[in-house]
Write a protein that binds this DNA or RNA. Structure first.
Lengths: 237, 237
DNA sequence: TCAGAAAAGATTGCATACGATTTCTACCGG
DNA sequence: CCGGTAGAAATCGTATGCAATCTTTTCTGA
């Protein structure tokens, strides 16, 4: 096999489902805000971009629409989701319900290996915060979400893990749309506090910290409707 | 297998997505246990059964696989999911985490109309319990799940509602596989207790009752591995 | 008789084709 | 100058065809 034709770092998923690989790349792009909310994702365009037929592109878009990252309208196509303020509130309400429980579960399952993984993650997170520029900013957003995903994986419930994947991804969209400041700098210290509680096995404390953390993230949003929902709808594309 | 033998009403799902309609019918069949866990669902068979092409059938199966009701293996096809005991535990762990919170949210939003809907639902549930025969039994299982789905819809968070739809459906599968007795008769009275708490707006009580209710359902399961997981795996088809 | 290999059959993965629907554009009458 | 309409272009929904893969059956040799 030729090495040159593996142009992308997606080499590990070469053998796997191509639709899944495309979904992952698109999801990353959405979460990273390289694709703005409302952007049209036509089947043909995605297909040619990834060099597959519309069949495969369509499957990838369907997956993303299940995750709520993409909204599809019949006979019109797929668009990067444009969550309403109400939707945003529901995303965070769901996280408030689920994540404290995940923190408790994770606290009871922490191993030294997990701690090391968290340390690595938080270091990286810190690095991106220190850096400047839009690219570092994107990486920072992603890293911040990865902390929560790592926690979910430690909790050891694959169903909840998948729910969290969806919620974290949608949160990125919401923050992109309604975020006010860089919440991340204060988020970083909260992540470190949570890790500390997890290390000590103080599940209650970890849970409480997590709840407050989510509250802080949501508090940084400006969920007032700007110019009325009708206007927003009209301008969404 | 005769799933699609219900003469198509085609009323509500006529101009909607056909794949979605097929998914709904298949899901009902799985939840009702008309399709046993492990049953193969070949694209061609589903397609001819519903009189659509494999393309559409495939889309429906993909949706179900996202919901965890169907497991797809590359180049082998789709099968009705056969959840492992571990998976079963995770389903109920997820419900224990989410449903008490849903009960609290619903308690704060109950209207007379909601109460009436619950009353109707519980009546129906009781009717099926009184009846005998496998058909009534199936309806009973479905009705029992509908109580939880109704609650989720009252809570008013569409994200959590979707999560609950998935969890309730998967619970049916789990109960089909590992259920011991008819849990439903005692479940019915617990449902009524929960409704009572909801009517009074005692959210804490509703939440606590819900938690106990889930515990009871899970306690009725026999999650010991029967004959080792290897054997089960081997015989799953 | 049975293990192993080869061929036949079935099923999936993917690409492509075609009709249907929507969106864009140019033209016309007011 | 503008709103409305007919035609063109683009896009989607779905069916179908072919190659790749998996499964089953059949055949061969010990």
């Amino acid at each position: 096999m030729n090495i040159a034709d593996q142009t992308f770092p997606a080499a590990d998923s070469a053998n796997e489902d191509r639709a899944q690989a495309i979904r992952d790349q698109l999801r990353d792009a959405i979460v990273d805000r390289r694709l703005a909310p409302g952007t049209k994702l036509s089947e043909g365009e995605v297909g040619t971009l990834f060099d597959v037929s519309r069949t495969v592109a369509r499957a990838a878009l369907q997956m993303l629409s299940f995750e709520g990252l993409v909204r599809t309208e019949r006979n019109r196509g797929a668009f990067v989701a444009n969550p309403s303020p109400e939707e945003a509130r529901q995303v965070f309400a769901s996280r408030r319900l689920i994540e404290p429980g995940i923190a408790i579960a994770a606290a009871g399952r922490m191993t030294p290996a997990h701690v090391a993984a968290f340390k690595t993650q938080l270091e990286e997170e810190g690095r991106f915060i220190a850096e400047r520029g839009p690219s570092a900013r994107r990486s920072e957003i992603k890293a911040s979400g990865d902390f929560h995903l790592l926690l979910a994986s430690v909790a050891g419930n694959v169903i909840l893990q998948r729910f969290m994947e969806e919620l974290v991804a949608r949160s990125s969209l919401v923050i992109a749309l309604y975020g006010r400041s860089g919440v991340s700098s204060c988020g970083h210290s909260e992540h470190m506090q949570i890790l500390e509680a997890l290390e000590n096995g103080s599940s209650e404390r970890a849970s409480a910290l997590m709840l407050r953390h989510i509250d802080h993230i949501e508090a940084d949003l400006d969920l007032r409707v700007r110019g009325g929902p009708a206007l927003r709808q009209a301008l969404e594309l």
